[in-house]
Structures are given as structure tokens and as C-alpha cells.
Design a protein around this nucleic acid. Sequence first.
DNA 1: CATAATCATCGTAATATTACGATTAACAAT
DNA 2: ATTGTTAATCGTAATATTACGATGATTATG
Lengths: 108, 108
Amino acid sequence: MGLTKTEGFTKAQVDMAALAKALGHPARIAILQFLASRKGCVCGDIVNELPLSQSTVSQHLKELKNVGLIKGDIEGPSVCYCIDEKAWSKAQKNITSLFKELAGNMCC
Amino acid sequence: MGLTKTEGFTKAQVDMAALAKALGHPARIAILQFLASRKGCVCGDIVNELPLSQSTVSQHLKELKNVGLIKGDIEGPSVCYCIDEKAWSKAQKNITSLFKELAGNMCC
DNA sequence: CATAATCATCGTAATATTACGATTAACAAT
DNA sequence: ATTGTTAATCGTAATATTACGATGATTATG
């Protein structure tokens, strides 16, 4: 299979899982950190920062775009990437509330 | 391939990605929420709460255990699961600091 | 001891993910 | 126009993930 069942789960659960899944690769964590380390868009040199080929990095960027965490604006021959502020703060809110929901109910 | 490259990334990045990956399935989100909704361990009826077969749920529980987020104590014929408080608060700290690191540096 | 209940594991199948090189598309500059 | 640069996409291969039924192991209970 390899196919994730979504029927029977809430939209919030499915969305949260999709967000977490997008963060579930070191390269994508590194990309987000690199984008944030520059104050602004990053045109070009993302590939040079990662130990992966250009096509692989492009795939990871695509996944981050699909989940909405980053945007890419075409700037001449290259593309400028940056974190999508709105999506990011929404993600932060959701994760924070998940942690709040799960806090303080431990037993063992 | 399907094999995630970890050389060239920091341990923090790899660990964060592993945590996120563990959260990257609706069933595993649902399991954590269900464990937290009960104040204490949950013996038994996790399977009944999910639209998945017993063996599939067992697999998801195993993944959550592998990343350390939950513990399972054998209690007679059944097993009591609960969130591992230490691992969970560490995860929370790491995610929070990731968000802090990435906040306020947007541009577009 | 036999049976039932609970959960892990095995075996299997379908699909997803990761990664790379090669190619293509778009644009800039000579 | 040709060339070079940048980044997406295609094609491919290897491995991972998801899911299920069936089987095992363990422990109560009759």
C-alpha cells in the first residue's frame, strides 16, 4: 500500500500530519533554517548549502511549497525563496496548541 | 533510493526531522491526542479509536516508541501506553526553539 | 489444561519517498 | 543567434512506508 488512510481522521489531524511530514527530512529543516538565517529572500545558493544534488534539492523545495511553508518568486533567471509568514505562523499556532493539548497528562 | 542522507546535516537537524517524521501521520497524531485525553495510561482500547486494523495500529505505536514519545508497560495480558513526559517536553523545547529561530525573518 | 483476550510480529502487496543524472525551459549576456 | 546560468522536470532505481490478514507469544480465566 504505502497509501495513508485519511478517512476516519479529522481535517485537523490530517493537516497537522501533513505539516509534520513536510518537516520530516533533515534537508527540509536545513532549508528552512537557511532561509531564516538570511533576513530576506534567498536567490540561488540554497543548493550549495546542502549535501545533495540540484534536482534533489529542487524536489525538497517543491514539497515545502506544496505544504505552503515557503514561496518562490521568479527573479530573472533565478528564483527567490522565502518562508511564507502566514502559513508559518499558522503552523506554529497549530503545533503549539497540539503541545498544549498534550501537556500535563502524563502518568508513568 | 528511498534512503535519507544524514551525512552533511547536524545531529540536531536529523533528530528534529526524525521527530517530525514520527508526527507525520494522522493515526499517530490521533494516538497521541487519545493518550492525552485520558489522564493516565491507556490499556487496550487504542485500536477501537482508530479506523485501522490492529496490526497497523501496533506498527504506529512501535514508531512512536522508537522515537521515544511514548512508553508501553505490560499490564497483565494487555499493554498500557502513555506519553513519555521527558521525551515529550524535550521535543516541545526543540520545536519551540526551531520556531523561535525561524520567526521574524520573513520578507515577501 | 483448554480457551479467550490482547498485542507483537511476520509475510505480503501497493504505493511513496529519496536521490541522482540527464534533459528541458527560461532568461541574461555576450 | 549562441552561449551560459539557473532551476524545474523526467526517467530511473533503491529503499521506506502503509496497510492488512495470519500467525505467535503471553497472560488471564474457565
